[in-house]
Every structure is written in C-alpha cells, then in structure tokens.
Computed example of a mutant assay.
Amino acid sequence: MKGSFKKESKREGHTWMFRVDIGLDERGVRRQATRRGFKTRKEAEEACNQIIHQVSKGTYVEPTKCTLGTYLLDWIESTAKQRVRLKTYDSYKYIIDNKLIPELGNIPLDKLTPMHIQNFYAKKSAEGLSAEYVKHMHVILSSSLDQAVSWKLIRSNPVKITSPPKISHKEQKTWSIEEAKIFLTHTEQHPLHIAYLLAIYTGMRMGEILGLRWEDCDLENKMIRIRQGLSCTSEGTIFEDPKSKASRRAIAITENIVDALEKRQREQKRNKNWLGQAYKENNLVVCTKKGTPIGPSNLRRHFWSTIEKAGVPRIRFHDTRHTHATIMLTLGEHPKVVSERLGHSKTSITLDVYSHVMKSIQEDAAKNFSNAFQTAT
C-alpha cells in the first residue's frame, strides 16, 4: 500500500497533499483518505505512513467518526511507545485506560472542546486527584493532540487554551542530621545499609542505587558514576540509561562511603564462594544474597520497617534525597554543587524545590551581614 503525493500552490506558497487507499466500503467501492496542508513532502509522508499503519492493523477510523478514545489507543501504541521510556509508557497507558477514556473517550475527536477538557480537570480535582496528577494528564492530552494536528486530523489543539491546576511546591519532609544518624545506626548490620548510606550521603535516586554496578564505583578516586538505573515496568525489571545528560553524572564520595563499599564487596565475595554457580553475577552493589536485583517495593518495605524500629519521623525513601540536599544547603554548600550532585538539569530547579531552605539561609546571611557591620571597629 502506497500513497500518492502532490505539491499544491497557494498564494502564500506551496504545500503538500497525499491520497492513499484505505479499503473498500460496504458496496465494494474503493475508499481513499486525503490530507492537505503539509509544509514539506516529508511531513506528508509521515502522516501517510501513519494511516497505512492504522489500516494494516485494522485500527483506522475516518476523522469524522474517530473518537478521542480510539485515537488515544492508537497514539499510545503507534507513536508514544516508540518515543518514551517503558516506565513512562506504562504510566501513560494507565492514565489513558483508567482516567481519560472513561470520561472523555466517547467524544468525537473533531468535536472535543476546551470546555470538555477544563471541566474534566475540575472534576478530577474535586475527586481528590493532586494538581501534579492532573497536570500529568494535561501533558498526555496536549502531546497526543499536537500529533493529531500534525496529521491533519484536527485543525487545532483544544488543550492549548486550557489551564490545569497550579502546582504549589510543598515543603519537603526531611530528617535532621541526628535523625539520619539514628536511622543509619539501626541498619549497620543489614546488607541494605549500603543503600541507605548512598541515599543519604549522595542524594542518589532509588533506581540509581539499585542499578549501581561495581564498574561505576571508582573507589581509588572516591567517585561514583551514574550510568544506569533499575526500573519496574509492565515487562518486568529492567535497567535503563539515565533519562538526561544531567542525570548521567559523577558524584564525589567520602572515605567512610569507600570503606562501606569495600565492606560490601567482601560480603558479596563470601556469598559467591558459598553459593558457587547458584550465585547470579549482575555486578550490582545492592542486590540479594544470590546476586539478583532487589525490587523497589522490597527496599521500601524494609525502609519503613526500620523507621518504626528506629523511632524517627516517617518519610518516603525519596525524601532521603531531599534530606541530603537540605543538609548540604544548610551547611552553606553552593546550590550549583547540590544541583550537580542531584542530577538536576538546571540550578534553578534546585532553588525552586528547596526555596524554603534558601529563605532560611538568606535570613541567616542577612543577620551575619548586619552583625559584621555592628561589630566592626
């Protein structure tokens, strides 16, 4: 199946159109899809190939009959799945199946209005969904309908003139240095102690810790390099490259972390010798006694169990990352250094997330400045 392409002339310039067979109607008459207004032949070819793909799968629906639900199901499989990480695809698919389609799925694609979408946001907010979650749905709708505009299925994207709820940054829950030390004391004899040390002393994400390999640890130069992370997806546990250049970073570590890593190496060596061929070599720093990856849910369960035993405030595992950043900023470390350790793409992100800490630091700085002037002779 191939399309035919033609350059068309208009007063404002040339555009491209295509026509492609989409099968026979109930009378046996050949049906064709025609699209116009593409700036380049390449754009027309991409749109044509998409229709051919839909026809071959039996999912093609003429724009006037296509509902938002039908379109979203095709978009997530034919387009989004090829562009995003598997874990992101899983998140998109869940939201499309369980949030967007039940509420908006029956609306014809070309009849979807900003009011439909704005009312949907208001309803979901009233039902208790967070502003972050509604914004996530907004991003999916906007991205998918941008594609529909590119394919000439709709003239404009109605999401562009809607307003999702404003996200207000809440003050992060963190531990003090004393609370972090109490927690770490309760894990000293447990194999997962190294995971908690890395979280609190480096600000690494859980997936980065569970995906850390020995080849990424330069103990001689006291440096850890983030080169992969562990993710749980619909296809099982997988290892993925960092999602951005900033996330693929090097983190300096101190002598006590080097000592803890060397101790962990000795523990693993004993396990290997004990289990022999039964040991599964994945070269992971944090793993089971058999060498297999540890799932995030198992790490969380032990983390919360230890919190109860230690008697420290209950926080999420991700909040150990906030603890690391908050302590560093409070101790006077430059925000750019903290940003680089966390793997933020911009220092402004760090300043925004930890604005409450920066406010306190600014107040202290103002007092110090004033005291310096008053005591000067």
Rank of each mutant, 00 (worst) to 15 (best):
K2Y: 07
K2A: 13
S4F: 01
S9E: 15
T15I: 05
W16M: 07
M17W: 00
R19E: 15
V20C: 10
R30C: 03
K39V: 05
T40P: 04
S56R: 09
G58N: 11
T64V: 15
L68H: 03
T70F: 08
Y71L: 04
L72E: 02
K81F: 09
K87T: 12
D90W: 00
S91K: 04
D97H: 05
L104Q: 05
L112M: 09
Q118A: 00
Q118K: 04
N119A: 06
G128Q: 02
A131T: 10
A131P: 09
E132N: 15
Y133W: 04
K135M: 10
H136I: 12
H138S: 04
S143W: 00
L145P: 06
D146E: 12
V149G: 09
S150D: 14
S150Y: 05
L153I: 13
L153M: 08
I154E: 00
I154D: 02
I154A: 02
R155S: 13
R155V: 14
P158L: 04
P158R: 01
P164N: 04
S168K: 07
Q172A: 14
T174L: 07
W175G: 13
S176C: 08
A180W: 10
Q189I: 15
P191M: 08
R205N: 04
I209T: 06
G211A: 11
L212A: 10
R213K: 14
E220D: 11
M223S: 08
C232K: 10
A246N: 08
I257G: 10
V258A: 09
E267S: 06
K269Q: 15
K272Q: 15
G276A: 12
Q277G: 05
K290C: 11
P296T: 09
I307Q: 13
A310G: 06
P313V: 14
R314Y: 06
E333N: 08
K336L: 11
V337P: 03
E340M: 05
I349W: 01
V357S: 02
K359L: 11
K367S: 13
N371Y: 07
Q374R: 10
A376C: 08
